[in-house]
Design a protein around this nucleic acid. Structure first.
Lengths: 154, 154
DNA sequence: TTCGATCGGTTGCATCTTGCTACCAGCCGA
DNA sequence: TCGGCTGGTAGCAAGATGCAACCGATCGAA
C-alpha cells in the first residue's frame, strides 16, 4: 500500500503533521498514552472505540514512529504501546487543544478533566507564542512564507 | 439535527476541541484563514478540496462559532469567511502542529512554508509548557485529574 | 445591454472509510 | 484442563468522501 497523502500542500508542516497523525482517534490515543495508558485494553476502555479501529490506529501510529511496541512491563506475554520521543513531542499539541477546549467549551464552574502541575497540583500557564527575542506574538504579528515566495510578499 | 458527539469522554477538553473542529480539513481551513484566505474560492484553490466538502466544512465552522460570514471587503456582492475570536484562539494549536511537523518531517535543508515574526522575519521560538510559577514542564511533570478523581490518584 | 467568464455553491453517484457484531486464537490463574 | 480475559480479525451495513456535472447570481468588458 503506497502512502497516500491526503492534502495537496505537503510543503506545509501543519499538513504533514495532520497527515502523520492520521485521524482524531489517533490523537486521543496519544492523549491517553500521555495519561498513562499502555495496553490495548486500556485504550479501548478509555476511548470506547471499536477494536478494529483501535488496532488499525495503533498500527499506523507505530508505523509512523509515534508509538513503540514493547514487551509488557508486568511480565505477562502481552505487548504495551509507549510513546516514542517523537510521540512525546506532541505534548504541546495536546496542551494547546486542551487549553482551547477549556476556554471555549466549559461553563466556568463545569467540571472537566484537568491537567495540572504534578508538583503543586496547579493548572498550567496558558501557552504563549513568542518571537526569538521574547516578545509575545499573536496571529497578526506573524506571516507565513510559502516556499518559493520568500520575504514579505508585497 | 441533534449534535452528535463522536467521543465518549466529553468531559475532556481535548475531546471537545476535536469534536468542535470536526475534521482535519476544517483545521486546514483555519490555517489558511490565518494566512489570509477569506473567500470560498481562495480556500478551494489553497486546499484543493472538493467544493461540496468545503461548503459543508465552512458551514460547520460558522455554526461552531469559529468562522463568521461577513460581506466582502472589496465591495462585491459575495461573502467572506473570517475568524472569530474563538477561531483566532486556535493559533496555539496551529503553531504547535507546525512546530511538530517542522521538527519531524523535514530534512534540515528541505524547503517548507515557514511562519515568521512579521517584524524581523525570524522563525518563532518553540512553544513551552510552563507551570503557573514559570517552571518548564514536560509530559512527565504533569498529571491529569479525571472528573470525580481529584488528587494525585495513587 | 449583452455576453462570456467567474464565483459560490448544490446534486447525484461511485467509492472509501467507519463502526458494530461476531468470532477466535493465545494466555493465565486455579 | 477449564473457564475467563486479552488482543485481536472478518464480514457487513451505514455513513462520509470525492468527483463531475450542473446552475443561478455576479462581474467585467465591449
Amino acid at each position: 500500500m503506497v502512502k497516500r497523502t491526503r492534502f495537496n500542500d505537503s510543503d506545509c508542516p501543519v499538513a504533514r503533521s495532520i497527515d502523520a497523525i492520521g485521524d482524531w482517534w489517533s490523537l486521543l490515543i496519544v492523549r491517553d498514552a500521555f495519561d498513562g495508558s499502555r495496553r490495548f485494553g486500556e485504550f479501548q476502555r478509555g476511548l470506547g472505540v471499536a477494536k478494529n479501529i483501535l488496532a488499525a490506529r495503533l498500527r499506523t501510529l507505530v508505523d509512523g514512529g509515534i508509538l513503540d511496541v514493547v514487551p509488557a512491563s508486568d511480565g505477562s506475554a502481552y505487548n504495551e504501546y509507549v510513546l516514542t520521543p517523537k510521540g512525546r513531542d506532541l505534548f504541546n499539541v495536546i496542551v494547546a487543544l486542551r487549553q482551547w477546549g477549556e476556554a471555549h467549551f466549559f461553563a466556568p464552574d463545569e467540571p472537566h478533566s484537568e491537567m495540572v502541575d504534578r508538583r503543586h497540583g496547579h493548572p498550567l500557564r496558558a501557552l504563549e507564542v513568542r518571537s526569538t527575542d521574547g516578545r509575545r506574538l499573536n496571529a497578526g504579528d506573524t506571516v507565513v512564507n510559502k516556499v518559493g515566495h520568500p520575504g514579505r510578499g508585497t
